[in-house]
Simulated assay, not measured.
Amino acid sequence: MKLVRFYTTKGEIEAELYTEDAPATVENFIELVEDGFYDGLVFHQYVHDTFVKTGCPDADGTGGPGYFIKSELNGMRQLHDIGVLSMCNAGLNTSGSQFVICLDRNNVAHLDGNHTCFGKVRNKSLDELYLIRRFDMIKKAELDELDDTVDPDAID
């Protein structure tokens, strides 16, 4: 299982990436993380009980990486729910680097079928997620991989 960790001004947020459900989106995201693209970026938008938004190098929602990627909307995990990472777009096939982290299913359900879900915050990080506000920062983003074939309870 591939993970991303965001070290923010409000704490650490860890999310599983949907490598099988949105492979091209995850590949793009991983390349951006490896290039340090998200390091130092702010959450440029916060909508109460809806989402926090980041990934704009201009800190105002107008910027991106300089290219677009294709939308991936047909996977099994394309449901916007609490903690889901979802690519922003201005229409089909116009995502790049900006994404939201959903805060409430009722307020983001309209994104289903329109925006690519590419990961989900793990439960232990939800407290930190709900602290994020506009202009909080991602100090650093880094990747990790967990061996999900090993049962942690079986280890002595």
Rank of each mutant, 00 (worst) to 15 (best):
K2R: 11
L3D: 05
V4S: 07
V4F: 09
R5D: 15
F6S: 09
Y7Q: 13
T8R: 01
K10G: 02
K10P: 00
G11E: 07
I13C: 04
A15V: 10
E16M: 10
E20Q: 09
E20T: 04
D21P: 06
D21Q: 05
D21I: 07
P23V: 12
A24W: 01
A24C: 12
A24N: 15
A24F: 13
A24D: 15
T25P: 02
T25S: 15
V26M: 08
E27W: 08
E27N: 15
E27F: 14
E27R: 14
N28M: 12
F29Y: 07
V33N: 09
D35I: 00
D35K: 15
D35R: 12
G36S: 03
F37Q: 05
L41V: 01
L41A: 06
V42L: 02
V42Y: 00
F43C: 04
F43R: 08
F43I: 02
H44A: 08
Q45V: 10
F51L: 14
F51N: 13
F51C: 13
T54N: 05
T54Q: 04
T54H: 04
C56R: 03
C56H: 03
P57Q: 05
D58Q: 13
D58A: 15
A59V: 00
D60Q: 05
D60T: 08
G61N: 06
G63A: 10
G64S: 12
P65Y: 12
G66I: 01
Y67K: 02
Y67M: 08
Y67A: 04
K70G: 15
K70T: 14
S71Q: 13
N74V: 00
N74F: 02
G75S: 00
G75N: 12
G75P: 03
Q78P: 14
D81G: 03
I82L: 05
G83N: 06
L85Q: 03
L85S: 04
S86W: 14
S86T: 15
C88D: 07
C88L: 07
C88P: 01
N93C: 10
N93A: 11
T94C: 09
S95K: 11
S95C: 10
Q98F: 02
F99P: 05
V100N: 14
D104M: 03
N107W: 00
N107H: 02
A109I: 06
H110V: 10
H110C: 13
H110G: 13
D112L: 09
D112S: 06
G113D: 08
G113I: 06
T116E: 05
C117G: 06
V121Q: 09
V121D: 08
V121I: 10
E128P: 02
L129V: 13
I132A: 08
R133C: 07
F135M: 14
D136N: 06
K139L: 14
K140A: 09
E142D: 13
L143V: 05
D144P: 03
E145G: 07
L146C: 01
D148A: 00
D148K: 01
T149R: 14
V150R: 13
D151P: 00
D151N: 15
D151I: 04
P152T: 08
D153Q: 05
I155R: 02
I155Q: 11
